[in-house]
Nucleic acid binder design. Structure first.
Lengths: 221, 221
DNA sequence: AATTGTGAACCTCTTCACAGCT
DNA sequence: AGCTGTGAAGAGGTTCACAATT
């Protein structure tokens, strides 16, 4: 399960594919880079080449949200970047909670790209008594038993779950009960949540197994 | 770009979708858990429920590789687990190199799930003189300038790239030149590689932007 | 009675191809 | 002439539905 709520739709009512949203993020990164290089205008073909997709794909992706280009000329880099930022909600500030302050979790706290994109950790939760009360990145680790009140107090929008696999579903259930609608799940298990809650899974073992699959297939032919 | 080589095929010649490979990894995890619980038999419906897919999807996924079940009875947990392990290449040992011993990279070194699945780091590379020569998890950080010889010496199968975005493509080019066919890329950029090299992208910012997109769409309706 | 394996139908996403602007 | 925006065609992935098997 990748997206567990009804697929998002534009104001025109179209369903937006997950793949489209992912590509918008990639185009956005390209546009930031072009802007920093002082490039003023870009074509769908240029964006396509830099992202290993077709130019028709780029234009189609944009078309769900509006007409951002000028025929014959291409796209204004600055304007397009702002438009995509708005679509992706990157013009807003998002408050994150980290549940499970382990190995991966601590790396995420120090992950600059989150802050650069207006994603800020404002709450750390763990169940380990040795961790509760300690501080990471200026944030005190709170007791997981008080999840609901801490989540509410910190005005959390998005929760990153990086607890052991056995604990993940219970945490998800509690988050759903407190009204959380967006979860980034690092635990290697499918979470069962209502359809109005979005879960994205970040599963590094699955990614690397795609690679071993490809290598094994080749070698065994 | 997710999979940059020609789509993998079974011995029967079917193309295997990325999505199918990802689901096989998930079923595999479910089977390991069922086995540890002492469950001997499982139906496609049970596997489906635990992974938020349909039972037809489960059966179709298996069908590309063979007929592993018994009509009326379901699948033997142990046998199916072995079959999937073989398909995914998890019955082999894979040697990993980590290029870029930063924040995320060091977290990966301590990531138990890799070793549990026969993925072993055998080489660390970095360009930072302060890091070269230091040790992490019993491995010495080698000089990135000697990439080709170190990769060959360590018999590396899969390379994890976690260098800054500006350096990623150059590293990828060097890896391709040494004959590496599988890359797990944590740098937030699309890598350009020949079609016989598989790249999987692990991009946490993109994942979290799916969430902000979903939240922003909902709130702005 | 239960459950698999699979061709066919269905649905979704991508690419084509060209009219419409600049 | 160059490039976007988009309906239509095409490709690919998922679900249906049922014959086959235990």
């Amino acid at each position: 399960m990748i997206n567990q709520r009804e697929t998002a739709r534009t104001k025109y009512g179209q369903k937006i594919a997950d793949a489209t949203v992912g590509r918008l993020s990639r185009y956005y990164r390209t546009l930031k880079q072009l802007e920093s290089l002082g490039v003023a205008t870009v074509s769908s073909d240029e964006l396509a080449k830099r992202n290993n997709v077709t130019s028709a794909q780029v234009r189609k992706d944009f078309s769900f949200f509006g007409a951002f280009g000028r025929r014959g000329l291409g796209y204004n880099v600055r304007d397009l970047k702002h438009n995509i930022a708005h679509i992706l909600g990157l013009d807003l500030e998002w408050h994150l909670a980290l549940v499970g302050v382990g190995n991966i979790g601590r790396a995420l706290l120090n992950f600059r790209q989150f802050q650069e994109q207006n994603f800020y950790f404002t709450l750390l939760l763990d169940s380990d008594p040795r961790k509760i009360g300690t501080r990471f990145n200026n944030l005190e680790v709170k007791n997981l038993d008080h999840l609901a009140e801490e989540i509410t107090k910190a005005h959390v929008d998005i929760v990153v779950i990086s607890v052991p696999v056995e604990a993940a579903q219970k945490v998800a259930d509690q988050l759903v009960a407190t009204g959380i609608k967006a979860i980034l799940n690092f635990a290697p298990t499918s979470l069962h949540v209502p359809s109005d809650v979005v879960v994205r899974n970040e599963n590094m073992v699955i990614e690397i197994e795609h690679l071993s699959f490809a290598l094994a297939q080749t070698e065994r032919v």
